[in-house]
Design a protein around this nucleic acid. Structure first.
Lengths: 218, 218
DNA sequence: TCCGTTGTTCGTACATGTACATTACAATGT
DNA sequence: ACATTGTAATGTACATGTACGAACAACGGA
């Protein structure tokens, strides 16, 4: 669409591949929307786009990869939404972001689960597909919002540690709400707000130093 | 072993069934220990105990049920360990409990995952197998420890809300550490302690009221 | 132009979870 | 003692994910 450039045969093939991949992804999205997550099977997906079942594996390593691709799409749209609406006040922006993040998790539990609650058991260290801070644009935004609060003097401490703890607490609340719908959390929205209030209060009362004091990554 | 009582035929059958179930569970435990969680298959399990593959389904509803049974065993032993070693000081006891809980989660990630990070998609509301506070003895203990701290005047607020938030924060930290081993958390133990410190500080600075202000369970 | 290389597509095959139906058998009522 | 009935055990069958390798087309260098 944008860069004809030389349009070598190599390029055309790659474009073709990307196109088919997108088509597969769209069909997968449809299937999930129609029949739920369990309704997505390789065979049904292949039949939908007119390929043989095994051809799907030319575009996705395995079923998990398809789920991840779908979920990544969803989270990108969330990130765009978050980026759009940001209050001026740094603390309000941070809070707004967390509530939106949590709301998204509760509205899209399957996507949230595949991105944040399943092992990347395909951790070929060559592919850097494991770091959630790279994969997920929302986490990038979180760092920015936290930095803004620090710049405004609302909090002190290490930005990365602060954001990680906030993410950890938020994730704990969201994932519990998703996993145990029958536990007496009371009003979910109220519980979420209470959780965030407590987390922020703790981070204010107990400023955090940087992570990894001693220890080398393997 | 203890109540011969009448030993009706019905009773004997139930005893037999429980015995076979226990045997299956032991074999499943062995398999998992030997070949990991993926190594546990219905067929292998059946062959191990000398039954036909389908016979397993007379004792467990599905594969998930086997995993859950194994995990429940593990958590019961954890609860015993926790109950045994409890410092006198209420706050120290609470902290000790949380660190042990987290350590257990990190040492037994598969068990932790099956109990706390997978849907009970078999939620027949008739069976009350969904409430983690019933299923998991560790959560019961948490309530006791929190209550002790409240009695000692260390914290104020609603016990249930307090414990739930603490669980939520602890779970968030543990589950993230399990799910993203490559994220730069730094020293895991240090991160856990920091997380707990912040959580407790937040709960001290921001006492929590009871949950479920308005809302009826469906 | 021609041949080796490389990547795409897909048929086949296997392991797995599990739904369904059938059989063997023991407990129970008459 | 015999028929009935419920349950345990199993065999068969199907849908699924995916590993293996063959057939084939596109491409690049001689």
């Amino acid at each position: 669409m944008s860069k004809p450039k030389s349009m070598s045969a190599q390029d055309r093939r790659e474009r073709q591949k990307a196109e088919v991949r997108a088509e597969l992804l769209a069909a997968a999205h449809e299937l999930v929307r129609e029949e739920g997550y369990e309704g997505l099977t390789i065979r049904k997906l292949a039949k939908r786009v007119g390929y043989a079942p095994m051809s799907v594996y030319s575009y996705f390593a395995d079923k998990h990869a398809i789920l991840h691709a779908i979920a990544d799409d969803a989270f990108e749209s969330l990130a765009r939404r978050l980026e759009a609406q940001a209050p001026k006040e740094p603390l309000a922006a941070l809070r707004k972001m967390m509530t939106e993040y949590a709301a998204f998790g509760l509205e899209n539990p399957n996507e949230y689960r595949t991105v944040f609650m399943t092992d990347d058991h395909t951790h070929d260290p060559g592919q850097s597909i494991a770091e959630p801070e790279k994969r997920n644009p929302a986490l990038q935004l979180l760092l920015k919002r936290v930095q803004a609060c620090m710049d405004a003097g609302i909090f002190q401490g290490d930005v990365h540690a602060f954001a990680t703890l906030l993410w950890s607490f938020g994730h704990g609340t969201v994932s519990l709400l998703i996993t145990f719908p029958h536990y007496p959390f009371g009003d979910r929205q109220k519980f979420l707000e209470m959780s965030m209030d407590v987390a922020l209060a703790g981070l204010k009362a107990h400023p955090v130093g940087p992570l990894t004091p001693p220890e080398e990554r393997c």
